[in-house]
Design a protein around this nucleic acid. Sequence first.
DNA 1: AGGGTCGCCTAACGATCGTTAGGTAGGAGC
DNA 2: GCTCCTACCTAACGATCGTTAGGCGACCCT
Lengths: 196, 196
Amino acid sequence: MIEAGARRREIDEVASELFHANGYAATSVRDIARALDIQGASLYAHVASKEDVLFAIVDRAAAAFETAAATAEAETATADPVERLAALVEAHVDVVTSDPRRASVFVTEWRHLSPVRRAGMAARRDGYERRFREVIADGVAVGAFRSTDTAIAATFVLTALNGIATWYRPDGRLSADAVADQYVDLALRSLTEDHR
Amino acid sequence: MIEAGARRREIDEVASELFHANGYAATSVRDIARALDIQGASLYAHVASKEDVLFAIVDRAAAAFETAAATAEAETATADPVERLAALVEAHVDVVTSDPRRASVFVTEWRHLSPVRRAGMAARRDGYERRFREVIADGVAVGAFRSTDTAIAATFVLTALNGIATWYRPDGRLSADAVADQYVDLALRSLTEDHR
DNA sequence: AGGGTCGCCTAACGATCGTTAGGTAGGAGC
DNA sequence: GCTCCTACCTAACGATCGTTAGGCGACCCT
């Protein structure tokens, strides 16, 4: 896979932009190279294959989601399920808004990975989704959340959150914090029992 | 654009399947032809271009969403905003579950249309989303929904609903009705004011 | 029986794809 | 001053892309 260097970081960055804008399959190696003002073949001094570029982006994104969720769960370990879910949702939104192009490539282009890598990513996604399902199940158990199908509920919330990657732009109308606040509120409300 | 015939319908169907599974750009004309047991070049007896196939699918999907929403709104014209939004959500879910591959192609592949057609679809999507925003705004005005950014709220709901297309399969664990019920409930709850 | 149309064929076009091979300019280290 | 390494180059490979041209057999209409 080669790795290393500041140039490699630049490649991932322009590739994120292009994969987000046009999709992995519709972006050629020469497109990526052109954005860096070099020849297509020169990319192979830094990268072993086009798919490696995709994997680097997707892998980094997956790691960002995982560590953010782990931190959020650690910080709310003793809190009630509602707070814990709020922390998970906020962490997820933060990762998306911190690099929406990377997040959108992660969400929409991972199917173009090789079968082995795709299977690995599928497993990591399952593990990540399980965090949400478990917190939701805990909330149902203590009566904080309505009794729903936890798989559906987790999917509902996660797909809504992932949608942010398709429209959010750092220089847009809404700040990342504002988006996070609104989405935490919408997501939690969709699950909580009637209150007051 | 050629149009016509049962064969043309078959082309759209297998193309939906392949575009959904692998994406438009990663699906070749010869892939589509192979699924029909004919030669790649023979497709051009039925179709003017590959993009026309994509457009036929996307256009039909857009029309399905539009007529379903129009019907739902007509049927609840005199009802309160909560019921009207419930009808819109249910209509949307019904269209998605009735043909999830077509819906997922509509949601994820429309960016590969030519600039002119893409602009047209963007306008139609805006119009469709406006239906949701207006009902939500009405609900906020009468105190049924919490006062939120209606654009964010509509996007939250619609991206969650569109996510169904990525995982729903007619022969899966959940019936289309069950999915619709759960999603109507989740979506409405995310917006409604605290009750009881 | 004859003409037309429909559905598919083979063959090929120019373009572009991801990738490899081999080379070269320039700076770093001894 | 020589060597080595980094970063890029040009040239080319075989494959595959969307699409066109021209032909051929099977069926319909008269």
